[in-house]
Simulated scan of single mutants.
Amino acid sequence: MAAITSTTTVTMDDGAKLFVKVLGGPVTNTAKPLLIALHGAPGLISHLESEATFAFLAPHYRVIAYDARGSGASDQTPPYTHARWIQDIEALRVWAGADKFVLAGHSYGGFVALDYALAHEDRLNGLILRDTWTDGRSAPMGALARIVTSPRVAGKVDIERQIRLWSGRLENQAEFEASIVEILSVYAPPDELVEKHNREQGIASSGEPAALEGDGSTKPLYNWHAQNFAFSRNMPDFYVRDRLNEIRAPTLVVVGRHDIVTPVALSEEIANQAGNAKLVIFEESGHNPAVDEPAKFQKVVLEFLLGL
Rank of each mutant, 00 (worst) to 15 (best):
L35F: 00
L35T: 05
L35E: 01
I36T: 08
I36R: 03
I36G: 08
I36K: 01
G40F: 05
G43K: 04
I45N: 05
S46Q: 06
S46F: 04
L48I: 07
E49V: 12
A52E: 00
T53C: 09
T53N: 08
F54W: 13
F54H: 11
F56Q: 04
F56D: 01
A58H: 06
P59T: 05
P59D: 06
P59I: 06
Y61S: 10
Y61V: 11
R62K: 15
R62Q: 11
V63I: 14
A65R: 10
A65D: 02
A65M: 09
A68R: 15
G70W: 02
S71Q: 07
G72R: 07
A73S: 14
T77F: 08
P78V: 05
P79A: 06
T81H: 06
R84Q: 15
W85S: 14
I86H: 11
I86A: 13
Q87R: 15
D88N: 07
I89L: 14
E90N: 15
E90S: 13
E90M: 12
E90V: 12
A91K: 13
R93C: 06
G97L: 07
G97Q: 05
A98T: 01
F101D: 08
F101A: 03
A104Q: 02
A104S: 07
H106I: 09
H106K: 09
H106C: 04
H106Y: 12
S107W: 07
Y108P: 00
G110S: 02
G110F: 04
G110N: 01
L114R: 11
D115K: 12
D115S: 14
A117V: 05
H120A: 04
E121H: 09
L127F: 02
L127R: 08
I128A: 02
L129N: 04
R130A: 09
T132R: 07
T132M: 04
W133Y: 09
W133F: 14
D135L: 03
D135Q: 09
G136M: 03
G136N: 02
